[in-house]
Design a protein around this nucleic acid. Structure first.
Lengths: 352, 352
DNA sequence: GCTGGCAGTCGTAGCACCAGAGTGCCAAGC
DNA sequence: GCTTGGCACTCTGGTGCTACGACTGCCAGC
């Protein structure tokens, strides 16, 4: 199992064909089906011997004695990593994705939700997406609004809309003019920066330059902290009804546990959260298969995830959840196409 | 069918018992079951005759010749309207609802979502809720921020947070002082008012009083319009997995169409939208049964809806969707208890 | 008007049975 | 030494049959 060359060409081809056929038909594949449908050049008896070996190697399993073979997690894994031909995004799908983002709302959570809807309809699977946290928005401007000599309202606006309003107060009088000067200086200096990159040093530098009081500086700091404060991770899901079309979910107990997980959101989030890394290579989709998901309820599921970027960093994830028997190459192409478009959309919105 | 007195006492009791028993067991009810389980004082043959009459009257139906009886839409309707004993909210449930709102988030959409989660777990059915539209929030304050002599930013804040920011510009110079005076006057005059009650006349009155230019007045009007602009109706749903426990949803085709409707949201919204009336009597739950829902996919469902209020008007809906065979009295008590608490919560947040 | 009895209907659970698909193994052949 | 046809064996799923049980509707008698 450890030697990646243990599979000779014929075994690899047979494994690939079994996976391909099983994905297409959802029926265990037998040696006869294989020889009849595919041009293998050898008889079914030979295939039988090879398949028996593939089974002892752990790539195939038999649901019961007199049935054909079905891929194991390891079988799918090898297929995805080494055997499967890559697919590119069909132009129809590409167009639909483009159109979706052209008509997209400006409300971030709506965009994320519409994206999952579109992708679940294209992929015929369950799709979910994690929205960028406020940390990753671009700072647009801050307004310090003088209410009285000792109170003010601080409103922070990011590329995705208003992030927070904070009421601030202090012990010494602050002239209204100071607030205006500070607002303007902060906006001139920091506009366009990513929220999480704006550290206290930046704020202090501006405050020092303008000779602003410590109390006022502290107020600004807390306004920024407030704006960055991480709300619940926003997660949208769509396409649960697609699962019902798959025979593996006709078992109501399995279906129920999957639905619970989807509604609960936390488990879904944990599944993809580890992959949201700012510096990650953001173009490659990742695949987790069956038990790799570490969830009993999902032992028969696979997950395709792909991060999307804003600017030059990964800020969120798009994920397609379906049966292990899913068209991996197609879904990977769909997911990364969508992620690219979503990233481009986010960049575009920021520029407006 | 039109004469509400067509049912004598005994028929009414039999109908009520059949509905009650069927709700409990999900099995068609026969005359023997009835005489054995309930003390009717007559023999099963008499019950048979009565049931046959109830069937010709349209209250009961027989799934097939040799089965017991099952209530029809009309049967459930009569049960709900006239036969069913009212239930009050068990103190356990009341406590759980109270605790939920005590710990509730301040973000409106989170509160609505958490409410549906709690109620779906209490009711063991599918729950959805429509969030109040911005129109029904209470106005808190407006800030007109002077950016340059001819441009400004208008930020409208309601009881539920920031509603909108609008960039405004004009052709004649506007002194910064005018903006401050206007902001303060508007806040003093309008704070606490419901957004949809704030009409142009209110704004004009203030502007006239302060001798403010027409252009500036127009800018304020557009800021308010922007803040009231109706986004997509916000709808949260929870508890789809509960449906799987009901035998009527074991049919995958039915289940699929219900799931589609729930995800699509629009149909759900239409089902309850008509009942969101500001001036409606906001304490009584309403019930729609089977075909009354006017959706083929929901012919075997019932819906309990109850509006919740903010201040003295209905602003949103809570709805419980389940099989027609649902414990109506219990769910009605649960729904209105939750609606009351949600209303109280909204009032409370507004005061803070 | 109520009741017990009875014939009749219908769905379902259980059972046996068979066909079909697929395997593993073996002995012969290239 | 790999490949192959043949063959016995296994297991599932569908079909047809029967028996049973749960009802009903109707009727004659109280």
């Amino acid at each position: 199992m450890n030697d990646r060359h243990e599979l000779d060409k014929r075994k690899a081809f047979i494994l690939a064909t079994v996976v391909y056929e099983y994905i297409a038909t959802a029926e265990p594949v037998g040696s006869n089906t294989l020889t009849q449908k595919y041009n293998l050049g050898v008889s079914s008896a030979t295939i039988r011997n090879e398949m028996a070996e593939l089974e002892t190697l752990g790539y195939l399993v038999q649901p019961h004695t007199s049935a054909g073979r079905v891929p194991s997690d390891a079988g799918y894994r090898t297929y995805v990593d080494r055997l499967m031909p890559a697919e590119s995004l069909p132009s129809d799908d590409a167009r639909r994705i483009r159109d979706q983002f052209r008509a997209a709302s400006r409300e971030l959570s709506d965009v994320i939700e519409q994206t999952t809807r579109m992708l679940s309809s294209l992929s015929k699977n369950l799709v979910f997406a994690v929205a960028p946290s406020r940390d990753t928005h671009a700072f647009k401007n801050i307004q310090l609004i003088w209410l009285s000599p000792r109170t003010a309202l601080a409103i922070v606006v990011t590329s995705m809309g208003v992030a927070s309003q904070t009421a601030v107060e202090w012990h010494a009088d602050v002239p209204a003019d100071d607030l205006t000067r500070l607002s303007n200086a902060l906006n001139a200096r920091l506009s366009g920066r990513i929220m999480e990159d704006i550290v206290n040093a930046d704020l202090s530098a501006v405050a020092a330059e303008l000779q602003i009081s410590d109390e006022l500086r502290a107020a600004v700091t807390s306004a920024f902290q407030n704006a960055r404060q991480n709300e619940e991770p926003q997660l949208a899901a769509s396409g649960t009804q697609n699962l019902l079309d798959q025979p593996e979910f006709h078992d109501l107990r399995k279906l129920r546990s999957i639905l619970s997980i989807v509604e609960e959101q936390k488990t879904l989030y944990d599944l993809v959260a580890e992959s949201i890394k700012p510096d990650a290579d953001v173009t490659t989709p990742m695949v987790k298969i069956g038990r790799e998901l570490r969830e009993d309820a999902m032992a028969e599921c696979s997950l395709v995830t792909v991060p999307y970027r804003f600017g030059d960093r990964g800020v969120g994830m798009i994920a397609i959840l379906g049966p292990r028997r899913m068209p991996y190459a197609r879904l990977m192409a769909l997911a990364s196409g969508t992620a690219d478009s979503l990233g481009a959309y986010l960049d575009d919105v920021e520029l407006r």
